[in-house]
Simulated assay, not measured.
Amino acid sequence: MAGGFDARGDWSIAFGRGANDTAESIKCYAVRSGSCWLIADGEDEPLRLATGDAVILTGTRGFRIASHPNVPAVDFTELLATPLDGSILSYNGGGEFFAVGGYFSYSDRHASILLRLLPRVLHLSNASERTSIRHSLELMSDELRS
């Protein structure tokens, strides 16, 4: 599943796992414009993401993205009942912050081995890391626009 998120003003969106959702997954998000905070369950500090940054989250832990860590969160399922499937969710009219992202779910018995080897939160922010993912982000953005 992949999609985009376009926001304006104060906002905070929570992404969690339901009690019956045990699928292991890798979630990937990239900030195309603006900035936000990532508050991941089990992490000590919020992580600031700026234009060009990307983050990879592994496992089944919940997290939220927000314009500021103190803004109360709205559950993602309240905003969107079905997967984005390539569309863009606009919040408060959009225009100040835009990110693209998606997730991959794994049901194979070997998935837990892979996910244990990866860090829970991987922040890609320096120039060489940005260069390595730029092409993929441009393709994802073009696909969303199409």
Rank of each mutant, 00 (worst) to 15 (best):
R17A: 09
R32L: 15
G4P: 05
H110W: 12
C28D: 10
N126E: 11
D44F: 06
C36Y: 06
S33C: 15
T82S: 09
D6K: 00
H123C: 02
L139D: 06
S136C: 13
L115I: 15
Y91E: 12
T131C: 03
E24L: 10
R61P: 04
A127E: 14
L118E: 11
P119N: 13
T60S: 10
H110N: 13
K27V: 13
G62V: 00
R109K: 14
E45H: 13
P72D: 07
S136Y: 13
L124S: 01
L144V: 05
C36W: 04
E143S: 14
S33Y: 15
T60Q: 09
A2P: 02
A66E: 00
G52Y: 03
G102N: 05
G34P: 12
P119M: 10
I39G: 05
I133M: 01
E43S: 09
G9I: 10
D6Q: 01
L49C: 08
T60A: 08
F98C: 06
E24F: 03
G62L: 03
L124T: 00
R64G: 01
I13N: 02
W37K: 15
D41G: 10
S67C: 10
K27H: 14
G59H: 04
A111V: 04
H110T: 12
L80P: 03
S90I: 08
M140W: 00
N92L: 08
L80Q: 14
L49D: 04
L139W: 02
G4C: 10
R32E: 12
L118Y: 08
A14Q: 09
A66R: 00
L89Y: 06
L118I: 09
G95T: 06
E45P: 08
L79E: 14
D6T: 02
G34N: 11
D6L: 00
E96M: 09
R64E: 03
I88L: 03
D142T: 12
T60D: 06
T131F: 02
S35A: 15
L118P: 08
M1S: 11
L144N: 02
G16H: 05
L89P: 05
C28E: 12
G9L: 14
S136G: 13
L137T: 06
N70V: 11
Y106K: 05
R17L: 04
E24S: 05
V100M: 06
D75H: 12
D142W: 11
I56M: 09
T58C: 07
F63I: 03
Y106C: 09
